[in-house]
């Protein structure tokens, strides 16, 4: 399994052709207290960069963009019951959805953990 990061502060764990997607710890910290998560329906086909989910803090709503193209094969329904879970375990149990990747080549432009840490330094 390989973990990738995006400049939109998402992470992807890729096993075979399936990517589990969530937001990074940095992202949840910037958002503040998460109070609502809207997840895509299973079976939805998304193009890389399309709005696929919504996460709302007390302050504001933020879009989550598909980090790669594919079909949504699972959504983490536990987040709808407990949106605050995103603040507690953003890079673990609080994943958003799983994507059946249609083009693994799209992963090439993404960052690994070290590159993402360096990226965070540049925007600090």
């Amino acid at each position: 399994m390989a973990r990738y990061y995006t400049k939109e502060h998402e992470w992807l764990d890729v096993t075979g052709d399936v990517a589990t997607v969530g937001i990074t710890d940095h992202a949840q910290e910037q958002l503040g207290d998460v109070v609502f998560v809207e997840l895509p329906s299973v079976g939805t086909t998304v193009a890389k960069g399309a709005e696929v989910a919504v996460v709302e803090s007390v302050k504001a709503a933020s879009d989550i963009y598909a980090p790669a193209s594919g079909e949504v094969v699972e959504a983490n329904a536990a987040l709808e019951e407990n949106p605050a879970g995103v603040n507690e375990d953003a890079e673990g149990g609080a994943w958003f959805f799983k994507l059946q990747l249609s083009d693994k080549g799209e992963l090439d432009g993404l960052m690994d953990a070290d590159a993402y840490a360096a990226f965070l330094e540049t925007i600090a």
């Binding site: 503040g32 207290d33 109070v35 803090s57 007390v58 302050k59």
Partner: peptide, 12 residues
């Protein structure tokens, strides 16, 4: 200040 480290929910 929009919030302190405790966060808006707890401050509220």
């Amino acid at each position: 200040p929009v919030q302190y480290p405790t966060g808006i929910l707890k401050e509220h």
